[in-house]
Design a protein around this nucleic acid. Structure first.
Lengths: 235, 235
DNA sequence: CGCCAACTTGATGGCTGTCAAGTCAGGTGG
DNA sequence: CCACCTGACTTGACAGCCATCAAGTTGGCG
């Protein structure tokens, strides 16, 4: 677990991450707060259910999943997170983490001690408001997932999932039509409320229809409009 | 839309609602902020998708649902809210509401202008932290719903739903074994990702098994342990 | 009293889960 | 460098849960 000094002011994710909208002077104050950067190896967890919560984490590079486990072993993946996104918001309410955060590739995160974040956001209005927006965005995102799980059929869910990834890669300057999936079919399935075989079959059908080209974890979106249509109506 | 002056300091929900943990002096400052109480008639909406967000709302009495609509008409109920709970957190991130909040019985709400809530929580640490916890709790709650929608079967979902209501009524001093459902079978179904017929059948089976006694919207929980067992394992 | 929305119950079908076999890709060790 | 091994993935056959369609019942309200 390497620890490196980091600086938001020089981070190229600052327009996506917590610093969004801050002035230079404010940025420097945030630098003091973001104390440590940590490397997390693929497969390792950043935090686990039950651990005491003391910091939220910004992903500097890499890819994570969060999941919740039921007593009988069933797993629900609650989200996939990429660079610039925050992890750990679930821990605020009970001061203990309520899900597991597991890295899906070698990653780097910035730890932000929560009590100090609260102090600073009492002083910097912009930071306070932005943090509230980030939490609210998480709530809205969750509502989208509930919609997906509650009303959509298998292929609609997968289309929505791919389009969401596409958009997020685009926002980070990567190709929005071609990318590698960091997660397994089983993890996609868990997120979408489907079995891995169903995910696999949906991929195959998308390929037959010419909407996507899939080879294992490599995906190319060939017809985004069709995917959108498929997600909205039911064709 | 009647407007009445209200006071957190004299509200009997203050231990459940936003004032939780505040000192008397702090409570009085919150009173200044919670400007208006409003009555919402059954079936009316408190806010709708797209409206500009300016305040969050605390439910003083009554019962609400929040829902999201898909272009093709599909509805997902994202939650049911009762006295002491907050509505409108979804609107913070875009400054526009992203779901509809509809009252399921005649209700009263307190409007809390959001910018003033932010100001005050920059001054009152306790209020700031409590507000963060409320938002975080909402995120955790959503994860629970995702688990429910993603991994549970119809009867498990209904059992989880009934037990959740039971617990929340209990926290408000009402019977946790006997209550009226404010929502229709269709709304329960939408929340649980099921069709109304499936909800109805699950109720009937619970009744046959002696777990509950149902008559339309009146529910009595007869065997809470069995319901819990049904939710966790799969029997 | 009659209407209508909400609910219950039955019959049928289809989507997705389950079980099983086989393929593919990447990593390890000889 | 190649053979082997393992985990991830694909594909097929079948089954079951829940959706759909349909008819009938109940209860509340004008």
């Amino acid at each position: 677990m390497a620890v490196i000094k980091t600086a938001c002011s020089s981070c190229n994710l600052r327009e996506l991450c917590l610093p969004y909208g801050l002035s230079l002077e404010e940025l420097e104050r945030l630098d003091d707060l973001v104390s440590t950067r940590r490397r997390i190896k693929r497969g390792d967890s950043l935090y686990r259910v039950g651990e005491t919560f003391s910091a939220i984490f910004a992903i500097r590079s890499g890819f994570f999943k969060t999941d919740v486990l039921l007593e009988d072993g069933r797993e629900q993946v609650t989200g996939f997170q990429m660079a610039g996104e925050l992890l750990g918001l679930d821990g605020i309410c009970t001061e203990h983490h309520t899900c597991n955060a597991i890295s899906l590739e070698d990653s780097e995160i910035c730890a932000i001690p929560f009590s100090r974040l609260e102090s600073l956001s009492r002083e910097i209005h912009t930071l306070q408001n932005h943090f509230h927006k980030v939490m609210s965005r998480e709530i809205v995102r969750d509502h989208g997932v509930m919609m997906l799980l509650g009303t959509m059929r298998a292929e609609e869910r997968l289309a929505a999932f791919l389009l969401n990834l596409s958009q997020r890669f685009k926002a980070r300057g990567f190709s929005h039509t071609e990318f590698y999936l960091r997660m397994t079919r089983e993890e996609i399935g868990s997120y979408l409320g489907l079995k891995l075989e169903t995910v696999s079959r949906a991929f195959s059908r998308f390929q037959e229809e010419g909407y996507v080209a899939v080879q294992q974890k490599h995906v190319r979106l060939l017809d985004i409009d069709q995917l959108k249509a498929l997600m909205n109506h039911r064709l």
